[in-house]
Amino acid sequence: WIRLGDYPYPYQGVICYDESALGNDFREFSNVMSPLPVSLDLLHCKSEAEWQTESNPETQRKLRVELISRYRQGLPVSLSSVSSREELNQLFQDIQLDRKQMSLVWITSLDTFFRWWKLRSEFSVSINRLSTGWETIISGNFEGFSPGLQIWRSQHSATVALYRGVNEIRDDVTAFANNPERHPGGFTAHWAGVSSSLIPFDFNNFAAAAAS
């Protein structure tokens, strides 16, 4: 399975802030106005609302576990109560989240994530198999973003940077990592069909247990 990565290279997940900047009209009609093929509600964490209602060790733990779990599954997050990077950094401190557990998470505004996703949908990519690996040709408006290509072999994946024009990806220098919690089709495929045979049995519980 080969596909464009859901996030700019080298990121493997995203946590968004400043959702309120998009305005009330956007929130009300997000299913029409959002460039994502999934509902904005899916990016929200139930544990965030619980933490906002009552901050205690249990809600702290739940939010920390859910953020790490979503990262390991490759699922995007939008924290609707957080309006800036500074507030997000403070939240990480408050819930005692070790960023090393999400070393390749992209921290950005929801608007920037939407802008990336819109550009991603407009990229033109061709992929050809070579005797030594793969040849890809990509064109489009990158606007400072760096797209990546994900290559899957069973539950193992590798992400490589793509540059405008022709890219050669050699098999002998491509490093794969075990990613049993992630869907090879990305977060849209995860939410579109969680019963798919591509996903390990008891998928959500497995990821949550790994994050605790």
Rank of each mutant, 00 (worst) to 15 (best):
T174C: 11
M33F: 15
R70T: 07
W106K: 07
G144R: 07
G144M: 06
R170Q: 13
N128M: 09
S80E: 08
R115C: 05
Q150I: 14
S154D: 15
R115T: 05
E58H: 15
W134P: 08
V77K: 04
A161K: 08
T53C: 10
W116F: 06
I107Y: 07
S80V: 05
K46N: 12
L63H: 02
M102Y: 07
T112D: 13
D98F: 07
S124V: 11
S103R: 11
S78H: 01
A49Y: 06
F114W: 06
S154T: 15
S78P: 09
L162S: 08
S34F: 03
F29Q: 12
S55W: 08
Q90F: 00
Q60T: 12
L110Y: 14
V82W: 00
L162D: 01
V82T: 06
L67D: 02
P76Q: 02
L43G: 05
L110S: 14
I137F: 03
S146C: 10
I137Q: 12
R72W: 04
L162R: 00
E54Y: 06
G140V: 09
Q90M: 08
I107G: 03
S30W: 10
N89E: 08
R64V: 07
D41L: 08
E50Y: 01
E86T: 04
N141I: 01
R85K: 11
W116G: 02
L91H: 09
S30T: 00
W106E: 09
S55R: 15
F145S: 04
V38R: 06
T136L: 02
R129A: 14
T53I: 10
T174I: 06
W152G: 13
S109M: 06
S124M: 11
W106L: 02
S124R: 12
R70F: 01
N89Y: 03
G148D: 05
